[in-house]
Nucleic acid binder design. Structure first.
Length: 295
DNA sequence: AAGAACTCCTGTTGGC
DNA sequence: TGCCAACAGGAGTTCT
């Protein structure tokens, strides 16, 4: 589900309910998600106050008064729902119940001293949570290998050309590699490549000269990555199947897709005349226009 | 050592 | 209608 814009949208939805609040109960309903929960997970949270909620790439990070930070990754289907103080039991949209009466795939419930409750639901369980010392965040195993933030000031044509120089992997794969740029996923890579008029199968190194100097395409790509992410954040992310904000509302950037999930539809470029194609690159769908996107 | 394939898990969809 | 393969917003691990 969530790429950078969706995670940022979730962060903004959780912030008012979490920051300043103290955990009074944590219900952990299974021993693991993608990975085991950290040892004594509920006990290490209860009593701690949330000092701040930030985002790094596709991760949410809650800094706690205990000196630890709660790292949360949503995987493909992770989803948070906030029940405001006094909202009682049932939350909007919880229609699927297991025999035991608990909503299906609700794996973690945070309760706060404010009365707010936050529920983590994850059908496929590719998400995970961990606790690490706040002082060691940058070098923890989740963050140590992450590349640069695409919305930070660091992303430029020069930096991108430098990162991609001499790489023969396709542009699509290089952009998905979180060790280079951290936060892009399948949707926004497809959209950024279309806007930059670059072929997804072109070697990543082709946006740089042999000496590593950026070509014009490197500047275009850096600019379109930033633009597509900023627009998607402003739109509250994209809702394809089940992404929803913490308050249950939906993103609407999917209406702005120019190629993603539009196989067979006419290219949006006036006079182009091609249709959007779907190919598979390293097991994942790529959508692009052969007329507009050149190697 | 880079790059691609395989893997985790459940649910939905589209073709026959 | 049923059945089954393909696919889904991610990324760590394992191969070549």
């Amino acid at each position: 589900m969530p790429e950078l814009p969706e995670v940022e949208t979730v962060r903004r939805g959780l912030e008012p309910a979490m920051v300043g609040a103290r955990f009074v109960a944590v219900e952990q309903r299974r021993p693991d998600l993608r990975f085991p929960f950290p040892a004594r997970f509920p006990a290490r949270l209860v009593g701690a106050r949330v000092e701040g909620l930030s985002r790094r790439a596709k991760y949410l990070v809650a800094d706690l008064s205990s000196g630890e930070s709660l790292i949360m990754h949503l995987g493909m289907t992770g989803r948070f729902t906030v029940a405001a103080p006094g909202a009682g039991g049932a939350m909007l949209g919880e229609f699927h119940h297991e025999a035991g009466g608990l909503p299906a795939h609700d794996h973690v419930v945070f309760s706060f001293d404010t009365g707010a409750r936050i529920t983590y639901n994850d059908v496929r369980r590719f998400g995970y949570m961990d606790l690490v010392p706040t002082a060691g965040l940058a070098t923890c195993r989740h963050f140590a290998t992450l590349g640069l933030e695409p919305l930070g000031n660091a992303l430029s044509g020069e930096v991108l050309a430098d990162l991609f120089a001499r790489r023969i992997a396709p542009l699509k794969a290089a952009l998905l590699d979180q060790r280079l740029i951290a936060g892009l996923g399948n949707i926004y890579v497809c959209e950024a490549l279309f806007r930059a008029r670059l072929h997804p199968e072109a070697p990543a190194g082709s946006i740089a000269t042999k000496t590593g100097r950026p070509r014009a395409s490197a500047h275009r790509l850096a600019q379109t990555i930033r633009a597509v992410l900023e627009e998607a954040v402003a739109a509250g992310g994209s809702t394809l199947r089940d992404f929803a904000h913490a308050d249950g509302s939906l993103g609407y950037f999917q209406h702005a897709f120019q190629v993603y999930d539009r196989e067979g539809e006419p290219c949006v470029t006036p006079g182009c005349g091609h249709v959007v194609r779907r190919i598979v690159q390293s097991g994942r769908s790529t959508f692009f226009c052969e007329g507009c996107q050149r190697r």
